[in-house]
Amino acid sequence: MSNPIRQTFQNLKKERRAALLTYTVAGDSSNKQSLEILKSISNYADILELGVPHNTPVADGGQIQTSAYRAIKNGIKMNDVFKIVKNFKKIKYSKPVILMGYYNMIYQYGENNFLKNCKKSGVNGLIVVDLPWPENKIFSKKCKKSSINFIQLISPTTSKKRLKSIIKDSHNMIYYISMLSTTGGKLKVSPRKILINYNKIKKIDPKKNCVIGFGITEKTISKFKNTDGLVVGSQICKEITRSLNNRQNPVINVSKMVSKLRKKIS
């Protein structure tokens, strides 16, 4: 069977639409609620990124940190993250799920054991924020063997030489970080500049699907609709926090937001 991530991009190419990727943190604000959120937003989102909460995140801004600390405070463990994915996949098997997190969580679980459980629960891809190329060479090969998409990250600081090597070693999907920022930063680079870099990546290998993340919100998303895909994370995490603070149901509010996002690129 073809990897659902690849399949999703193929289907969307036919629709001539960019993929909408969402990022939420596993266990935010509870294991049950994060599953409900996944179920609900999967009606609008094409690929679901699920953050593995970590307490020393070196690339996440305030909103995602808040979500992660909330989940950790509620006692989430790695096995709970797998359970959430497994339960989600029971109802939506073909909807791709990507786990995103920091390497220490994988390292402590054991790389092989981690991949085994990814497979068992239905995880389709992995983004490991602090395992760059070439440090990720061995692990990304292991992922490939387990039919799990290891998603390489590229940033505006990535040199030309690195760019080529990273794309060459990448699997089906690549993640372009739009600007120098932690997650949740305001878009401080013009969309035109971001698209120039995006096109550089596409030129090297047009077959690889490249999604853009960081600074993508309801306000900015439509400017990038002619790309392979877009990731919205911090704005969703912020909406969860806002809903909780106002004693509203985050599931409903977040779904509304994701539905709006989807309309903006449809």
Binding site: A59, D130, P132, W133, L153, T157, S159, I177
Partner: peptide, 23 residues
Amino acid sequence: KLGFWGGKFGGNFVPETLKKPIE
């Protein structure tokens, strides 16, 4: 080459953005 002492301590577990300034 990857910055590990004794083959396992140290290294560069950093976001891609920091690769260039570190280099």
